[in-house]
């Protein structure tokens, strides 16, 4: 799936807490399901992106054609398995940042602990609050 140069790409960046609204815990199993469902939908809609889980915070980028990307974001908004969702940034760009990923998933609490990745994730989580552009660049290097 390569970034189509001709059509502009809508990119949405948001963060949320990995706590379902109605109950408190989000199991590993549930996260796996979310990622699998996301990949399936995104592949069909030519949506790409990254999902990070830094401690109990989700950081996600979705990008693609405007319609499908807005629809994917709406599905995310309808999902009560996370809470405190904050839209951080929305831009249009000429190409995708993550053309190869229907939904890359990187989590900080994976075992065995990978110190370097955890530090990088932490940096991204901090950067996202004030410098979304920098955070996006850091996400790209994280996946390289």
């Amino acid at each position: 799936m390569s970034g189509n140069q001709a059509t502009p790409v809508l990119r949405i960046l948001y963060r949320s807490k990995a706590h379902p609204i109605r109950n408190t815990a989000l199991s590993h199993r549930a996260i796996e399901e979310i990622v699998a469902a996301s990949r399936r939908r995104n592949l069909a809609d030519r949506v790409t992106g990254v999902l990070l889980k830094v401690e109990d915070t989700f950081i996600q980028v979705i990008e693609g054609e405007q319609g499908p990307t807005e629809a994917a974001f709406e599905r995310i908004c309808c999902d009560e398995r996370h809470s405190g969702l904050v839209l951080v940034d929305m831009t249009t760009a000429n190409h995708r940042l993550f053309p190869a990923w229907s939904m890359a998933y990187v989590a900080s609490d994976e075992l065995p602990p990978r110190l370097q990745i955890n530090v990088k994730l932490k940096t991204i989580a901090i950067a996202i609050e004030t410098r979304p552009d920098t955070a996006l660049e850091q996400m790209q290097t994280l996946l390289e």
Partner: peptide
């Protein structure tokens, strides 16, 4: 719980046509 859920979900941004 339902109400709390609704309040939260409705407060999420709606993105339409940019």
């Amino acid at each position: 719980d339902l109400c709390r859920c609704l309040v939260e979900v409705m407060s999420r941004a709606v993105v339409v046509d940019g």
